[in-house]
Every structure is written in C-alpha cells, then in structure tokens.
Write a protein that binds this DNA or RNA. Structure first.
Length: 602
RNA sequence: GCCCGCGUAGCUCAGUGGAUAGAGCGACCGCCUCCUAAGCGGUAGGUCACAGGUUCGAUUCCCGUCGUGGGCACCA
C-alpha cells in the first residue's frame, strides 16, 4: 500500500533502537529479544544471519509474552526439523535478566516469558514519555494529506463526514508516527457545479419576486439555496431581478436537461453581467464558510484551503497541458484535446480540453498535483471517495507523462456510507437536497461518537450507519466504553489528597507489587501501543487504533473490576495507581489522535 | 462486458503465511453494604462463500466459480 520511500522511513525508525538496552527494557523489549535470537542464530546457523526475525504477541497467555516462528522459517533451508532448530536456538540464547523462561512449543515455536519486572517496566516508560509515548520519528519526511475536498455547493453530508474523520485521523496518526504532515482541502471553486449553484440561487431569488420561472430538476434543490436567495434579496432588494421572459428567451428547445441548464447559465451571465459574479461569489463564500465551520466543530482542521480557480488564474492549468503537449502526449480529435493516458495504463484516453475550449476537471487536477509535488512533499496522500476509483490511473499517468514520480502520490479510497433509518436504507442525493447532513449527524450523535463510529470500519469497507442506533446515545456505542475507562481513572485520582503528587511519584514507583494476571495483560497491552502506531501508520489504517483502544479499555475494565486500586497497603496502592496512570496516558494519546475527547467524568 | 472492493458466529465487524480464528450486539446464567454497573465473570454459537493451486503449514498468497457493492463522461 505504501511505496518504498515511505516504508524505508518506518523501517529505519523500527531498526534504530535495535541495540539491546538492558537499562530500559520497557521501551524496546522486542528489539532486545530479536537481538538475543539473532545472536543465537549466529551460533546455530551463521549462514542465515540475514533471516528476518519475526516476533509476535501470542494470542494465548500460556504461550508467553512473545513468540517467534524463526525455527519454522528456517526448517527448509537448514533441512532440519523445526523443533530441533528451536531447541538449538534456545540453548544458544544469551542469558537475559528480562527473560523468565524460554519454551519450545508446538511445531517449533520459541515462546518467551518475561520477568514481572520486564513486563511492568512499560509503566515507567509510559509515564516518563507522557504524551510522547508511542511517537515515532521520521522528521525528515514531509507528507500532505488532502481530504474532504467536497464541492462547496451545499452542506457536507454523512459521506463527507467519513472522509473528514478518516483523513483527520490518518493525518494525526502519521504526525504521531513522526512525519511532518500538512492537511489540505482542495476547493473546487471553478467549473460548472459552482455555476449551477449560482444559477440555482438566482432562480430562487427571482421566485421571491414572483417571476414565473420553473425550477429545473437538475438544479440544487436544498433549502439552503433559498436561504442564500433571501439573504441577497435582503441586502440588495430587487437589484438582480430580471423578467422571466428575458431569462427564458433564446433557450434551446432541447429536451436535454443539461443543455437547458447550461443555456440558463449562459442567459443569466448575459443578463446579470457583474451581478453574476456577485451571486457566484456570494454562494461560494457562504458554502465554504459553512463547510469550514462544520469541519472545525468536528475537530477537523486544515493547514491550507487550495483554490482550483487559482490554478486557472495563474496559468497553471494551461502550463500543465502545455507540458503534456511538449512531451507529445496529447492529440486532437473531434475538436477536443486528448491525453493519451492509455500509454500509461489507463483504460481509455481522456479529454483535457473540451470541444467548447473549456478545460476539464482532469486538466486542473493534473496542474494541482504537479503543484503539490512542486511544493516539496515527499509523499502526497489523496483521500477520495470510492467513486473516484477510475480516476487514479489517469492522474498517475499524467504525472508520469510529465516526468514526475507518480509513486509519490498515494490514493486512498474511502467507501460509501449508507444510512439506515427505521431499518431502511435512506436514499440520498446531493442535487435533490435529500440527505442527512454531517451537522445534523453531529448534533444528534455528538462529535465524539461520530468520530469514533466512523473509525469502526476500515476505510475500504462500505459503512452502514444506523441512524437510530447512533442517535439513541445507547451504551452500544463503544466510544463511551473507552471514554469511561478514562473517566474511571480520573475518578480514582480525584480521591487522593494530592493527585498531582501521585502522578509525579508514579514515575519512580516500585512496580514489583504488580503480579496479577490482569495486571500483566494490561502491561502487555500498553507495550503494544508503539508498534500499533507504527503498523497503523504504515497501513494508513487509523481504524486499527480505534480497535486497539477498545481492547485497552477492556483490559482496564477487567482489571479494575477484579482488583482494588485504593487499597491500604501503600506500596501496592502506589504500584496500581502507576498502572492506572499509564493506562490513562495511552488512552489519551490514542483518543486524541482520533479526535475524541477524554472526559474526566461521565 | 471490463476494472476495483467485499463474502469470517444469528446480526455488525476485526484479524493473521503458523499453535485451540476473535470482539461487540443479540440469547442464556451470574456479580454492586466495596475506587462510577456507561462496568465485570461465565455459557451457547464457525465447513473463515465454493472448488483448485503454491507451501512443512493457507482463513491469509495465486487461478477459477458463485454472490454482493461500486466504477467505467468532452460531470466534478
């Protein structure tokens, strides 16, 4: 999924701490164990020193804290049974103060059981690192994540909401993994859709003054269009009123609704002159402002809002097309200008300039992506709706044709959201204005539940959004489960005389009293966080973080229910408080990446 | 027709080239004189769509079939 240069950075980060550090096993016990295995491998099979040593977390507690299938991997090349290899490897393992015991089990697995001290050490690691626990470091790589980028022709709907939640969480995740990330919204403020919105607004405006005009079925139907018309009427009276007869004069008798709409737009431009620009601009800024506020309230921020129109104004679109032409990648046919994208793996060639002389959206998109590359991002990530799937080949093809490295562009497709109300699928259409907006969803469900709910499905899976369930505020929503764990820990601290002091002291607390099974499980889960971040960032999979947080909360609730934290035994109480504090820290780190709040009480 | 997803417990979905495939919901049985019961423990529930192939090992990778969703504009 991720191209080579990207992987390289993560891999380097991964390897950077592979030197064994006996002083701080909690931070990289994995690498310590890998080092032990590699040392043993040097004795048992020097020729296999390059073999990748995989360590996994066994699903079963009886299989220890870490397991390696190294012996099974080597069986063939060494022509020896896996169990035999495993036993030899175990004999050659250097002694380690952090390993309680090593078993050979099953077909030849090597299972490591850590000492309690090694297992508990993660608590200190978390508390020492604080909000930096789990962070990676890939400082030298700049990424851009472009997402949402919905046409500013109406309120965002729940589908946009998914793209917003996914993109924002992905960007935050990559940032946490150590990349320099810039978030961008591409504003399609040029083109026909905006013209249609302006026309729709004007027609509603004329209707306010009683002009007898039919409202085209393929114009924007939403109530917000009427509102904009009313605003304009309130501010400018009938200044933009024109007789219906004049509007309709000269319209083609065609049955094609699109042709009729284009003719209406042309008529409006002619009748209004500069007034058209005003209405167009008014509609754009109204919708863009609405969109921006909506996203801000949703906790989704952008470093930049990039105007498509600016690409035209600065000649970038024409320049991009010229660049393709100079490379001999364009040809004329039927009056249009075509890009030979089939030469770059696309199914068919694509038009960049229409017969009527107007550039296609594709043309400006080429210019846009060239511009992204010019801005120096190492990797550019586009989050698109799944319906843009067919678009990838042509954009990458165009980039390749201009000599750019298309591998620097990563496209992630987010599948559709289907809404269900009363058990029935809600049909939605942007044009007809019949859809549930993101704002409505947020107001009814709450931002936290919304953000988390969107992350409960991997992005390439269609999401069925049950409105009734989401609106019901029921306990079924896992966000409460995770937040509740956080609130419970805060509640514990609130009962102490000096919560702040407890937090400071926890960093050096003696953890040896932590010896219960559930405490070990919780420590193990905390220790997984850094690698979870690493893998989720590599896979562009913020949903994995949501699932992890559910599991972490489950481990916490289970422990909390079984063991009392505020016991009389001071050393035990301190140790358990430290574990609770570490859990709270990881919950915070994870939830903040997902844009979900961490309430202190519920 | 071609291209891209997806088919895992009754439902909604995770997951993985390795040891007995997991969670939530639903069902059933339990747990508050005790740090928040928005919680916990337990029981039941599976031919990982089907058929081949690669492999020591496939639910995972490859081919095919079936089912299902989406895409195949001089729209954006």
């Amino acid at each position: 999924m991720i191209e080579a240069p990207f992987l390289h950075c993560l891999a380097r980060h991964f390897m950077s701490s592979s030197t064994p550090r006996h002083s701080a096993p909690g931070l990289d016990i994995r690498h310590h164990l890998i080092h032990l295995l590699r040392t043993a491998l040097g004795s048992v099979a020097p020729g296999q020193m390059d073999a990748e040593i995989l360590l996994e977390r066994p699903k079963q507690a009886s299989h220890g804290d870490f397991a390696s299938a190294l012996a099974l991997q080597l069986a063939r090349s060494l022509k020896t049974s896996p169990r035999q290899i495993a036993e030899r490897l175990v004999r050659e393992l250097p002694p380690s103060p952090w390993v309680e015991k090593v078993d050979v089990a099953g077909a030849g697995f090597i299972n490591f059981t850590l000492t309690a001290a090694a297992r508990n050490a993660v608590v200190h690691a978390v508390l020492a690192a604080g909000e930096r626990f789990g962070r990676g470091s890939c400082k030298d790589r700049r990424l851009q994540v472009e997402f949402v980028s919905a046409n500013p022709t109406g309120p965002l709907h729940v589908g946009h909401g998914r793209g917003a939640a996914y993109g924002a969480s992905l960007a935050a995740l990559l940032e946490f993994a150590g990349f320099e990330v810039s978030r961008e919204y591409y504003v399609n403020d040029a083109g026909r859709q905006m013209d249609i919105l302006a026309l729709s607004t004007w027609l509603r405006y004329l209707a306010l003054f009683g002009e007898p005009l039919p409202f085209p079925p393929n114009a924007y139907q939403g109530g917000y269009v009427v509102q904009m018309a009313e605003q304009i009427a309130a501010a400018h009276g009938d200044g933009y009123r024109r007789p219906a007869a004049a509007v309709l004069a000269g319209l083609p008798a065609s049955d094609d609704p699109d042709l009729r709409l284009d003719a209406l737009i042309a008529s409006a431009k002619e009748l209004l002159g500069a007034g058209w620009n005003y209405i167009h601009q008014h509609a754009l800024s109204e919708q863009l402002t609405d969109c921006r506020e909506d996203l801000e309230e949703f906790g989704v921020h952008f470093e930049s809002w990039f105007s498509e129109r600016s690409l035209y104004d600065t000649g970038k679109v024409a320049a991009a097309v010229d660049l393709l032409a100079a490379g001999g990648h364009l040809y004329e046919q039927d009056g249009a200008l075509w890009f030979r994208s089939t030469a770059f793996g696309d199914e068919k060639d694509r038009v960049v300039r229409r017969e009527n002389g107007i550039y296609t959206y594709f043309a400006s998109d080429i210019a846009y992506h060239l511009n992204k590359f010019e801005r120096g991002f190492d990797t550019v990530i586009d989050v698109w709706g799944a319906d843009h799937h067919g678009y990838i080949a042509r954009v990458k093809g165009a980039l390749t044709a201009t000599g750019a490295d298309a591998r620097r562009l990563e496209v992630t497709l987010v599948q559709f959201v289907s809404l269900f109300r009363d058990g029935e699928k809600v049909s939605m259409s942007t044009r007809s204005g019949e859809y549930v907006t993101l704002r409505e969803l947020r107001q009814e469900v709450g931002n936290d539940a919304c953000r988390f709910f969107y992350m409960l499905r991997k992005c390439d899976q269609a999401l069925d959004f049950d409105l009734d369930l989401a609106k019901s505020q029921s306990n079924d929503n896992p966000v409460y489960y995770v937040q509740y764990a956080h609130a419970r820990i805060c509640s514990l601290l609130a009962q102490l005389d000096d919560p702040a002091a407890a937090g400071t002291a926890a960093v050096t607390t003696d953890l040896s009293p932590l010896c219960h099974e559930r405490e070990a499980a919780l420590c193990q889960r905390l220790g997984e966080f850094p690698e979870l971040i690493e893998n989720a960032a590599r896979d562009f999979a913020p949903h994995a973080l949501a699932f992890y947080l559910k599991e972490l909360a489950a481990d916490f609730h289970s422990w909390y229910n079984a063991e009392r934290v505020l016991v009389d035994d001071r050393s035990l109480r301190q140790a358990r408080l430290a574990l609770a504090l570490a859990t709270r820290q990881v919950l915070r780190n994870g939830l903040s990446i997902l844009g979900v709040s961490q309430p202190e009480s519920m």
